[in-house]
Each structure stands twice: as C-alpha cells, then as structure tokens.
C-alpha cells in the first residue's frame, strides 16, 4: 500500500461519505471542537444511560476533511457496537479509549491501534504517520474528553 492508501483506507472513505451517528437533538450536551488550520469542525454529544453511568450513544455533527469526519463516525460506531454487545462504556472505559487512541496517533506509526478493541476504527492507525493530520483525527475524541472533564467537574 502506498502511503496515501494507508491513510485513506476504504473504511475511512466509506465513513466520510456515509457517516454514522450523525445528528444532534435539542437537549444534547455538546462539545464543539475546531481545527483552526483547515476549518474542520466537530460538535459531539455523549448520550448516557438513565442512571448516568454508561455511554449508550455518541452523536455528532460536523464538516471538514475526510479524516476528521470519518474519525467521528468511526468513534460513534465503536461506541454503538460496544453498547449493543452489552459493554456500554463507563467514563473510565471511555477515557481509556481516548488515551490509547491519542497514544497511537501520536506515535508516528510506531504503535498501531488494537483491532480487537477498536474494530473498524483501527483503520485510523495510518493517520499517525501523517503528523499534520493527527489533529483532524483527534477532533471527535477531544470533544468526548472535554465532555468527560466537564461532567467530572460538575459532579
């Protein structure tokens, strides 16, 4: 695979064209993140279970490059798949995903994402070799982290 094909894997192209988890509703608590370099935007919400302990859904809206949009879509897909399998994320689970994702993306291709844990989102591993694009891929995940931090501060 050429460098370019490693970056733009078919999964990423598909998610950027038909995004999952797209659409916010009134009442969602959101975090809005921007990449000022290229104008990528993601606004993201975490939808919690009734008892407030687990993430049942990740919803978002945004515009920008295919990497930023596909990353948000893959993140929402990952949350939905884990919730469907009865493993909806606790705040700690979510933080662990964000930390691993960040570590892999900042590794300059040294640390791939674990396919067992990240599923299709592991296709984003290729982004880590493209330093200028890491911020694009991080956008949705940073929004989720921002929501977690705010939630902890309010508790």
């Amino acid at each position: 695979m050429s460098g370019l094909e490693q970056l733009y894997q078919q999964i990423i192209m598909d998610h950027s064209k038909s995004p999952h988890g797209y659409g916010l509703t009134e009442g969602d608590v959101t975090s809005h993140q921007r990449n000022p370099v290229c104008g990528d935007e993601v606004t993201l919400a975490l939808r919690w279970s009734a008892d407030g302990t687990r993430v049942e859904e990740v919803a978002w809206e945004g515009s920008g490059c295919s990497i930023s949009q596909a990353s948000a879509s893959l993140f929402a897909t990952l949350a939905a798949e884990d919730a469907d399998a009865g493993n909806a994320w606790t705040p700690d689970d979510l933080q662990a995903f964000i930390d691993e994702f960040r570590e892999a993306l900042r590794s300059r291709g040294q640390i791939p994402l674990d396919e067992e844990r990240f599923g299709d989102a592991a296709a984003l591993s290729g982004v880590s070799k493209f330093v200028a694009r890491v911020k694009c891929a991080m956008l949705a995940w940073v929004a989720a982290e921002d929501l977690l931090t705010r939630r902890a501060a309010e508790a």
Binding site: S2, G3, L4, L7, Y8, V37, C38, G39, D40, G64, C65, S66, I67, F130, R133, C136
Partner: peptide
C-alpha cells in the same frame, strides 16, 4: 476538502498550501 486534496499532492512530492 482542501486538506485531503493537498495530501494527494504531497504524496507525489508537491508542497502546496491548504487551509484558509
């Protein structure tokens, strides 16, 4: 998106600016 277009150019050694 311009960012994606610029990546295609970068891949063949062409340095062009993307953004606003």
């Amino acid at each position: 998106h311009a960012h994606d277009a610029g990546q295609v150019l970068d891949n063949v050694g062409i340095a062009a600016r993307v953004g606003h």
